[in-house]
Amino acid sequence: MKRWLRQRVDAAYERLLSQEISGAPTHVAVIQDGNRRYARRQGGDAHEGHRAGAETTERVLEWCQDIGVEELTLYTFSTENFERPAEENEALFDLLCEKLHEFADADRVHENEVCIRAIGETEMLPERVQNAVEYAERRTYGYDQFVLNIALAYGGRSRLLEAARGVAESVDAGDLDHEAIDVEDIERRLYDQPVRDVDLIIRPGGEERTSNFLPWHANGNEAAVFFCTPYWPEFSKADFLRGIRTYEHRQESWRRTRARRALALLGAVSEPELAEARSIVDRFRDSLPSSEQPEDDEFEPSDSSGRAAD
């Protein structure tokens, strides 16, 4: 297909997808996969792939802000990536330093009050990268309109392990009652600043796995997951909008499931429980097909014999 025709088709598809989307997830997490494979296919080296991927990252940041996403987390460098060739990692570290300074000084970042944060074992990174992280965090500290988390030297299981150790130490020291341990005790120890639950994980590059990415915030929230085949440097706005559409379909399915469960319980609940079940049905009634819409008399509690109570 000729390039001009391809561009017109893509633009029309983007408009169609935009019309189908009615909302946006609060927190999107992206596994930036396929930079090196893209470079090899183009006949270049890994560094060229990472630089092309950085351009995609800037576009995705704009797309998120355009549709109302409030937090974006980018899986940029995992703890396993340290095992890659040193010359490849050094080139990537130089690119990270360049982009962190560039982002921290960008007018659009300050105009849109973007808070830049790094999550992960950043002390494992070269000093120049740590300095760039500190610069970006300091320059955008206090902004709260949009949060950009950059996962560097990141491993999901290692973060959970460190949090568990922190809880155990607090219990041993007598600062925390083991019977009082709750979700907040874990979350406070995962990251220096709060991270919202993940609503949608996007992974390009053809792999269909989440690679130990934000397990507490994604799995615990039953996040939607969107896999697609383009390598990260090729990731388009249409791909992004398809991911958002996947999230919306997942949310609608969740609403229907909640409503159906509440309806199924109505005939067997006691009076106090009935009020809660009715509240759930009222909230999610519009997500049910018309054939499943309950009648008002279905909200009446039943006695032990199964008859509607007088």
Results as ranks from 00 to 15, higher is better:
Ala151Gln: 03
Arg138Ile: 02
Glu208Met: 10
Glu127Trp: 08
Ala39Arg: 03
Thr79Cys: 07
Asp105Gln: 12
Ser270Ala: 12
Tyr154His: 01
Pro204Met: 03
Asp197Asn: 12
Ile31Met: 06
Ile150Met: 12
Arg250Glu: 15
Glu111Asn: 05
Ser305Leu: 10
Ala180Arg: 04
Thr26Phe: 04
Pro204Phe: 10
Ile150Tyr: 06
Ile31Ala: 10
Tyr191Met: 13
Pro204Trp: 12
Gly243Pro: 00
Tyr38Val: 05
Ala46Asp: 05
Met124Phe: 10
Lys2Ile: 08
Ala259Phe: 02
Asp182Pro: 04
Asp66Gly: 14
Arg6Cys: 09
Val60Thr: 10
Pro85Leu: 11
Pro85Ile: 12
Ser279Trp: 08
Arg128Ala: 14
Pro289Asn: 12
Ser305Lys: 07
Gly44Pro: 05
Val281Asp: 00
His101Phe: 14
Glu169Cys: 13
Ala168Ser: 11
Glu207Ser: 05
Pro25Met: 14
His110Cys: 06
Thr140Phe: 08
Gln65Ser: 09
Arg51Asn: 12
His101Thr: 01
Asp172Arg: 08
Asp175Phe: 04
Arg15Met: 11
Gln7Val: 11
Ala163Lys: 01
Pro126Tyr: 11
Glu48Phe: 03
Leu288Asn: 04
Arg59Met: 05
Gln251Ser: 11
Glu87Trp: 10
Ala275Ser: 12
Gly43Phe: 13
Gly49Tyr: 00
Gln7Leu: 13
Glu113Ser: 11
Arg36Cys: 01
Glu58Arg: 08
Gly220His: 09
Val60His: 02
Leu241Gln: 00
Glu90Lys: 15
Ala86Ile: 07
Gln19Trp: 11
Asp177Ser: 09
Asp107Asn: 03
Arg256Cys: 01
Glu292His: 03
Asp10Ala: 07
Leu288Gly: 03
Ala163Gly: 02
Leu288Phe: 02
Leu266Val: 14
Glu98Leu: 07
Ser236Trp: 00
Val60Glu: 10
Ala136Trp: 00
Thr229Asp: 15
Pro194Met: 08
Gln293Ser: 12
